[in-house]
Design a protein around this nucleic acid. Structure first.
Length: 253
DNA sequence: CCCATTTGACCCTC
DNA sequence: GAGGGTCAAATGGG
């Protein structure tokens, strides 16, 4: 169980490094050297996690097993597992991702202050789409949501939701925003989170509704990015690495 | 009436 | 047996 402990510690270290990097980067007054150092720190921790993972230590988010149980129970599912940490400025719950999700369950997780919500593709039955996602508020920061995508969309909407991977410069000019659609109370934080991309083909997209929510957005890079209080992790089967990077080329201007 | 959410029960894995 | 994931009936909103 030492591997699990190591993975857990690395996970925590990784999360902290990323958060620090994101915060320092946002801080206009932070010295350039500090920003560089934090960026290097985050990158280094990322590499450490990858090395640990690659050496046989299953490093997965939230201490979850390296092979999700879903992979055994649902044929064709769990080929893609991606965790996204989403921050919202307003405590009204996070984002939508341009895809249709239907909530099918909610569970209190041992040791977690907030319940975990389970979503599946709206077209699960009509189009046999096996994509699911799990949404849970981060214990450390209620404004952060850990979103874990499991499986890839095979339904028609996968093409409908255009990915939006934009450059940092573009983001700074027009930051895409995440936010809930209906303004439901925070008490049901996850109930409106049903618009998110899942599969690598559409890493991320953003709601088109104007004036949605301000202050939170993300970009995709080599597995992680954190801007303006938002970061996300992408975890997927190793063989998909190349696929991710290839896809990113599609979003160049 | 249709569809999404809620929630307790059930199932599976460890 | 505990914990996590899913199912399905009940419920509510549009």
């Amino acid at each position: 169980m030492e591997d699990t402990a190591l993975a857990s510690e690395l996970e925590r270290l990784q999360a902290m490094a990323r958060e620090l990097d994101a915060r320092v980067h946002d801080d206009e007054g932070a010295p350039a050297a500090a920003r560089q150092l934090c960026g290097a720190l985050a990158a280094s921790v990322d590499r450490a996690v990858r090395l640990a993972s690659g050496s046989g230590n299953a490093v997965k988010n939230n201490g979850q097993p390296s092979q999700p149980r879903n992979s055994c129970r649902k044929a064709g599912a769990a080929k893609v597992r991606m965790q996204v940490r989403v921050a919202t400025v307003q405590d009204t719950g996070p984002l939508n991702d341009g895809l249709s999700w239907r909530k099918y369950g909610q569970k209190d997780i041992l040791g977690a202050p907030y319940p975990r919500s389970y979503f599946r593709c709206t077209h699960r039955h009509t189009q046999d789409c096996a994509a699911t996602k799990q949404v849970q508020r981060a214990a450390a920061d209620p404004l952060l949501f850990d979103v874990v995508y499991i499986g890839a969309h095979t339904c028609a909407q996968q093409g409908a939701a255009l990915p939006l991977l934009i450059s940092r410069e573009q983001q700074q000019q027009q930051p895409p925003v995440f936010g809930q659609e209906h303004g439901s109370p925070a008490a049901t934080e996850a109930q409106s989170i049903h618009q998110w991309p899942v599969e690598p083909v559409t890493p991320f997209s953003f709601p088109s509704s104007p004036g949605a929510i301000d202050g939170c957005y993300m970009l995709a890079s080599s597995g992680y990015a954190a801007v303006d209080g938002l970061g996300f992790d992408m975890e997927y089967e190793p063989q998909l690495d190349e696929f991710f990077f290839d896809q990113s080329d599609l979003f160049q201007p």
